[in-house]
Simulated scan of single mutants.
Amino acid sequence: MENWNTSSNFILLGLLGHSRTHRILFSLVFMTFIASLVGNALMILLIHTDPRLHTPMYFLLSQLSLMDLMLVSTIIPKMAANYLLNSRSISPAGCGSQIFLLLTLGGGECFLLSAMSYDRYVAICHPLRYHVLMSHMLCSQLVAGSWLLGGIDGLMQAIVALSFPFCSRREIDHFFCEAPTLVRLACADTSVFEDVMYFCCVLMLLVPFCLILTSYSLILAAVLHMLSPEACKKAFATCYSHVAVVGLFYGAAIFIYMRPKSYRSAHHDKVVSAFYSILTPMLNPLIYSLRDSEVKGALRKCVASVWP
């Protein structure tokens, strides 16, 4: 096998073929992509324009929608272009960009979801000090920290993954460039990098997840001490949406990045990656808008202003 130079492209084997069933599936994927763009863009617009939503919780939610918007825009347009043009190639620069953006946005969402759980903890356990503990400066620092930590992880893994010598076999059994899948094509010993990558992914997933569990443990303890059933119901209602989003995101991410290598399957990776990169960004704004009366009120107000 001979090494390739930096001008050689990778081949993405993709997710779908060109049978009638796969064409229908592609149409569903594209409609999901459009729904994700519209849903997340609308969520950002509502939070920006409605003064009632200018609170720390909705500021963090707008950043989650922004990350989801960028996530689907990183994957689906290239996937759709390759499918429609019957092309499977992606340049090393394009592959590195996808790895960087995916890990930046995925890592950023991990820490952002933990910041949102802390926001719910303060709102329920320390309601009188909420605006002091969740100040605008602290919210900005939490958001900036989420983007920064995700960006550092993404940049590090993208640079190292593309620094390996690759052999003549340049076929990536995926529909986008993902670091674990790309490293399998290397002609060098990648065990040290894979161990470091696994350790980084565990930290990026488990540290925020432990913070989320801690926040909700304290919330549960506080709710159980509430004497009013109405207060308990209201407290739980403020957490339902966030818990659902955490379950969707972490379930898929842990399956992809924390399984031992002996249990990995390219087919399973593609299916689960499609779930968290295509379906989850569409579901997040739906989960929050359907469960949140203030978001629904802002949406009704927006619709009424357009069509009085």
Rank of each mutant, 00 (worst) to 15 (best):
I11K: 09
L148C: 12
I172Q: 03
S62P: 00
P51F: 11
H225Y: 08
I124E: 11
L283R: 03
F10D: 02
V202K: 02
I219N: 08
W4F: 10
V223H: 11
G150T: 04
V196E: 04
D153S: 08
A231E: 06
P260F: 04
V122T: 11
L211H: 13
F176S: 11
F26S: 13
L60F: 12
V243L: 14
A158D: 07
V272W: 11
Y263T: 07
S91Q: 09
K270R: 14
G17F: 06
P56K: 10
V122S: 03
C201G: 00
F249W: 15
G150N: 04
F26I: 09
P260S: 03
L220G: 10
H126I: 00
Y58P: 14
M197Q: 06
L149I: 14
L148G: 01
K233N: 07
S73A: 09
M156Y: 15
S8D: 12
G154D: 08
H174F: 14
Y118G: 11
D153L: 10
A266T: 08
A274W: 08
V243P: 00
L290F: 09
S27R: 04
E2C: 03
K233W: 04
C302Q: 11
N82M: 05
V246M: 06
L16M: 04
A186F: 04
P180H: 05
P285V: 08
P260Y: 05
T190H: 03
T21S: 14
